[in-house]
Amino acid sequence: MDIHQLKSFKTIVEKGNFQDAANELNYSLSAISYQIQQLENEVKFPLFEKIGRRMLPTEQSLKLIPHIKKIEEEIEQIRQLNSKDRKVEGSLTISVSDSLLTYILQPILKEFIETAPDVKLKLKVRNCYEVQKEIIRNDIDLGIHYQVHGYDEQIKVTEVSTFTVGVMASPLFSQQERNFDKKDQIKSCSVINNDPNGVYQQYFEEYLKKKNILTGQNIELWSIEAIKKSVMNNLGIACLPHFVVEEEIKKGEITELTIKGFQRTITMITAHHSNKWISPAMELFLNILNEQMVCEPSVSVEI
């Protein structure tokens, strides 16, 4: 049994099939198949079973994954033992919310890539709850998302910044439809979102429910930029963080609806397993993130 066999098995599980794993690791299909055969001989139980036309990992084999990840971390720590004067290398996998990646993290990523060009950086765009699951399963190095409930003491959570959100509309949006303060209304306007389970989307849904306000259809676009374009073209309204629409509001392309009873904040956090080794790459990224976010004061309002 060697690390190459273990890594091949983990990559097959991650990629979902032998061929994609072979391509990822730059192996031939026969070579990676041979490694799995050798590993099965070592562990004395089948790693995969054929279900229909697919080869799926057995329940017993999946128990190997946490051990393989731990071995990989230990190996990376050994490589970094004498790395004080060496360039930062290795890999870093981050799952992050779409809006944060698009509007907040760009300068952080730019500085990180310029400072550590040899780090293999992998970014996954997920909603908050998907990021949570990946962190809890220890599938990623770091999660960056809006704070939601669900973490226990095994997860290290750090609050980074707080942002305000509002309900956005086109300047052409009907004046008759703009009043969301009054209770018991039926409105024809559509509500656009990029994730119906998103934190700020849920805030607005809860407000509408509390006020007994019915709206038109919900439009799911799964793209912040597409939502902004749709709002600008008066296809509907959308609840969004202010930093997403700052430029469009200044240009008069988007306007914020004045809703007295709707004032909400969202908190950006970083999260990772408490027992996870903080690699030089991860430490550098967190340092850059904290330094740059200090320069951007957080915004808070009373809820």
Rank of each mutant, 00 (worst) to 15 (best):
I12A: 00
E42H: 15
V245N: 07
V244W: 02
F243N: 11
G150E: 11
Q201N: 11
E159W: 11
A116F: 06
Y203N: 07
P46F: 00
Q77S: 12
K44A: 12
K120N: 13
C295G: 08
A271F: 01
V13I: 10
S190M: 15
T162N: 01
A271E: 08
I288M: 14
T115I: 02
L257E: 09
K63F: 05
P107C: 15
V119P: 01
E42T: 11
V301N: 04
G166D: 07
T102G: 03
V88C: 06
F45W: 08
K120A: 15
V231R: 05
D141K: 11
Q292E: 14
K209E: 12
L121Y: 12
P117D: 10
L284K: 01
T158Q: 04
M293D: 14
L172S: 08
I104N: 01
S274L: 04
E291G: 10
L101H: 06
K276E: 07
P297Y: 08
Y200A: 07
L109G: 02
Y200I: 01
H67L: 14
I186Q: 10
Y151L: 14
Q185A: 15
F45Y: 10
E74F: 03
A226S: 15
I266W: 02
H67V: 07
F285Q: 01
F45I: 12
R79E: 12
V119Q: 06
F48M: 13
V167T: 04
V13D: 02
I144T: 13
H67N: 04
A226L: 04
E114H: 10
K44Y: 00
V244F: 03
L172G: 00
E253V: 03
A238T: 06
S223W: 00
N26W: 09
Y27T: 00
E49C: 00
V199C: 13
K110N: 13
Y200V: 08
A169V: 09
G16A: 15
L289H: 00
Y34P: 03
E296F: 13
I32Q: 01
T115S: 11
T215L: 10
K70M: 03
E256M: 09
V13G: 02
K44F: 08
R86E: 13
P107S: 15
L29N: 13
K182N: 09
T255S: 03
E130F: 05
V119D: 08
A281Q: 07
T267C: 08
F285P: 01
N82I: 06
K182Q: 09
P196L: 15
K44P: 10
E220G: 09
E253D: 10
N23L: 08
I75G: 09
P196D: 02
P171G: 05
P297W: 01
F45G: 11
W277G: 04
V131G: 01
Y203Q: 05
L208M: 05
N290Q: 14
E24G: 01
Q217V: 15
E256P: 09
L121V: 12
M282K: 13
H149Y: 07
I75W: 03
L109R: 00
K124D: 12
Y146A: 10
S279I: 10
S274E: 05
I136Y: 02
